[in-house]
Computed example of a mutant assay.
Amino acid sequence: MEKRVYNAGIDFLRIFAMFMIVVTHVLGKGGIRDSVSGTVDAHFLQTWIIQASVYVAVNCYALISGYVGFRSHFKYSKLINLWLQVAFYTIGLTLFFLLLGKPIEAQDWIGAFFPVITGQYWYVTAYFGLMLTMPFFNIALPRMGLSDLGKMIVTGFVVFSLLPVLLDTSVSEFSLSKGFSMTWLILLYIVGAFLARIDIKRLNKPFWLIGLYIFS
Rank of each mutant, 00 (worst) to 15 (best):
E2W: 03
R4M: 14
I10L: 14
I15V: 15
I15E: 02
A17C: 04
T24V: 12
G28A: 11
D34T: 10
S35H: 11
S37F: 15
T39P: 00
L45A: 08
T47W: 00
I50L: 14
A52V: 01
V56N: 12
A57R: 12
A57W: 04
V58M: 09
Y67Q: 03
F74L: 04
K75A: 07
K75L: 04
K78V: 13
K78H: 13
I91S: 07
L95N: 03
F96W: 15
F97T: 13
G101P: 05
P103D: 07
Q107W: 09
D108H: 13
A112R: 14
V116Y: 03
T118R: 11
T118S: 13
Q120T: 10
Y127R: 01
G129D: 02
L130W: 09
M134L: 07
M134W: 00
M134K: 05
F137H: 07
L141Q: 04
R143Y: 04
M144Q: 02
D148Y: 09
F157P: 02
L162M: 11
L163K: 08
P164W: 08
P164M: 11
T169K: 10
S170A: 14
I186E: 07
R197P: 02
I198H: 05
N204M: 10
L209I: 14
I210V: 15
F215S: 13
